[in-house]
Design a protein around this nucleic acid. Structure first.
Lengths: 197, 197, 197, 197
DNA sequence: CGGTAACCGAGACGGTACGTCCGGTCTTGAT
DNA sequence: ATCAAGACCGGACGTACCGTCTCGGTTACCG
């Protein structure tokens, strides 16, 4: 999270220990029973060290999850573009489905997603570091599709993003049904073709 | 919530005072700082009286909100059906938009919606008393549309419900943009016609 | 200490456990390292239970020491009066010397005496429950001596109390020398006869 | 305090700033809330600089108070000796009364006196630098009085010092009554003449 | 119609965690 | 080597609530 003190003297050892402890604990006891006190104890750190650098337990967990995905960001600098929008979207959504079915990451991520609904600071951070960049990628891909006449010209691409990626996120967040490749495919097809068929 | 003890001797005075206190407090301090202790104090009730009849503060707030909407349920026993699916859906979504823009009800409702993501007991209760009945209404209307060839026959109606009502709920829950009548209309049109146009 | 809540529902079990824990701990680690947290843990009590009934760790220890001396108070309802003031005072001071040489009680008592110098609430309580009654006893004995012409009529009895009992307390509090029966005798004799002899 | 490192490179600027900060703060918040951290911050010094040269906050305050009284020590190299012991003692005790009624110095001094009761290192330092020299002065004066037959020959001069100067210190330390010139006179007279008169 | 059992208010209790303060140690870079 | 600055681990603070547990007082049903 955005640190108030100058981060120069920050101990990387402590930082790592804290993030690892947070990940371990959230796996063991779940987000609700995760506590800053517990993280500090597990990490062998003072509580103040956590409060100095993070504003909430959600922020710690966020950084911990970001640490896990470090390095992956660069490779996926662009969404796939084979020229076939429908196929490409299915590829992307199926990959997301696979990620979300990985409980090791998915459960803390769900907890974090919920926390974001409730904590504006965390929400801003998430938007800036994750949501916004991802949305740019999506918009870029859709824009090319629109230029290639695979999307109607009057479509608002922001709405398109919501329609394509929203259903998956909703099912995941609300646990409203199983996340399968078939479901991903259905969403893509239906959204592209419309309900009238 | 479904009471465990025989509800015979239950004091309606207390129940009302508790629900009102919960509503007042959630408006004053927000859901995060709402506490059972606070509700009891405000209501002039003992803590035990709350613990006897509700399993969590979320459950109290849920009942409190249900109390507010009592009576409305019957009138809307069916979604409008003028024969024009698109127009009917716009009517329904616009009405929802209006409700969600009422902060007096919307804010506690959001808090409750978030709690539901995290508390399975509450989730089950919500499904049974609100979500399930609402979904039946929606499915019934869509089924008639499908029979009238206004929806493609191969459409899975569960998916259709997600696509039509999901975006609005998502925008609301994630505060991802303004909820307007125009937005409602756009969603309905786009989902019905598909992105390809 | 003077309790704010109505003491009716107070748990005597907890009270005993807390006072015993305080005594044990002060013996083990000393007053400086005595902590309310530690007392609560040792007593198997919640911290709030201590904070509810006592304003400070000094107050807890005070009550604990008072508990130890309970029952003794009544028997010593009057200082000895054989008619020989000097002998009686020596008896009393020698007894005090013996008490103060008992480290089991003396060490916590010293710590408490120091705390009293610094905490006005504790000081008021000590005055009311210990100091004031003791002083009455002393004054009563001296008044009888003055009536019996064993003390000069112009002597201010408050000053006399200070001169007789002060030196012992000072030596004890400041650890300024050994406390012996001889010392007690010397003080009594010198104060009664004066330095000029 | 006696510095452990070789004091060669010691910054006098820092020393002054720290002692002044300590005095200021003890006046503003009292001894209990005085902290080394606070002193360092107020002095614009690092905490380490304090820990390097003083073993405790009491030691800092002690040095600070010594700094205030620097220069006075030499002039009073001897207690007054007009040949009239009673008059001389009254002079000395009255002067002490005046000092102790100066709250600017008296309050921190009281705090320090209390700390000395509890901290053996501080106590040793105080004895060496203040108490012992003062006692020598007192003993010297009393010895001359004893030689001049103004004190009985069998009097233990250590006890005499306790009896003469003790009551004043006790009243001051325990806040047991007002400190006045009359009180000083009464003590001197009563102790010299004895309670029997 | 009187007894009794559940309810109710009040709030004490053992706990857990909070967020803060400060102690005493340590590291860094500047003088 | 000392200094200002301040991060670090750790212990304790005093507070807020949790969920459980008496305690009397009051209904309201049932024998």
């Amino acid at each position: 999270m955005t640190p108030q003190p100058k981060a120069a003297r920050r101990s990387q050892t402590s930082r790592q220990a804290i993030l690892n402890a947070a990940l371990d604990l959230v796996g063991e006891v779940g987000y609700a029973r995760l506590s800053i006190e517990g993280i500090a104890a597990r990490a062998g750190a003072g509580k103040q060290t956590i409060y100095r650098w993070w504003p909430s337990k959600g922020a710690v967990l966020f950084d911990a999850l970001m640490m896990l995905t470090e390095g992956e960001d660069q490779e996926a600098a662009e969404l796939p573009d084979t020229g076939d929008l429908e196929a490409d979207l299915k590829t992307v959504l199926r990959a997301t489905v696979d990620e979300l079915n990985e409980p090791r990451y998915s459960e803390p991520m769900r907890a974090l997603a919920v926390e974001i609904l409730v904590d504006p600071v965390l929400a801003a951070d998430f938007t800036e570091r994750v949501d916004q960049p991802m949305k740019e990628l999506k918009l870029r891909r859709l824009r090319k599709a629109q230029e290639a006449r695979q999307l109607a010209p009057e479509i608002d691409l922001d709405v398109a993003v919501e329609l394509i990626w929203g259903p998956l996120r909703s099912r995941w967040l609300h646990r409203e049904g199983p996340l399968t490749h078939e479901y991903a495919d259905t969403i893509v097809e239906t959204v592209l073709n419309g309900l009238r068929g």
